[in-house]
């Protein structure tokens, strides 16, 4: 239970931030924290706390899997790449051919989110395909 102690500030922050379905358990010397955050800022805050406890994440003793909850009614997402365009691909995977691109900060239509990692989207030009979900921010 030493890991729970090491990352107590993080689990406390998760509780304080109202993370839902929070699960904290230790297995084979690694602590697994799962949960759902209300928004991206809450998730980023937890990662900052993690970075304070374990600078640059070098210990390899924690897997922090906090996703941002998305209302089922959400229909649009913003492209949140660092600066570049986001590839739209024929299928869910980087091995799939690129069928289009969405610009940085562009708002695109969500067609299907059944795959956690790759969302099916459509641009305003009518290009349809899969984008890497980590680079999309659901619009309320």
């Amino acid at each position: 239970m030493a890991l729970e102690e090491k990352y107590k500030a993080l689990t406390d922050a998760a509780t304080a931030a109202g993370i839902t379905d929070l699960a904290v358990r230790e297995q084979d010397g690694i602590l697994y924290i799962d949960g759902t955050a209300a928004d991206g800022a809450t998730k980023d805050h937890l990662w900052e706390v993690y970075n304070q406890i374990d600078p640059n994440f070098t210990s390899g003793d924690l897997v922090l899997n906090v996703n941002v909850s998305i209302d089922a009614a959400v229909t649009h997402a913003k492209v949140v790449t660092q600066s570049s365009n986001l590839n739209i691909r024929k299928g869910p995977g980087t091995d799939q051919p690129i069928v289009g691109k969405a610009a940085h900060d562009e708002i695109i239509t969500l067609v299907n989110r059944s795959n956690d990692l790759w969302w099916l989207v459509r641009t305003k030009d009518g290009e349809e395909g899969y984008c890497y979900a980590q680079y999309l921010e659901a619009q309320a």
């Binding site: 690694i30 640059n56 994440f57 897997v63 980590q134």
Partner: peptide
């Protein structure tokens, strides 16, 4: 440094057993 958090966030969502980070920051 700025990309490290993004990369770690992406990888942590993939249900790995462990992330052994030997990257030079």
């Amino acid at each position: 440094k700025a990309s490290l958090i993004t990369l770690m966030q992406h990888l942590s969502a993939l249900k790995p057993k462990k992330i052994d980070n030997k990257l030079t920051v």
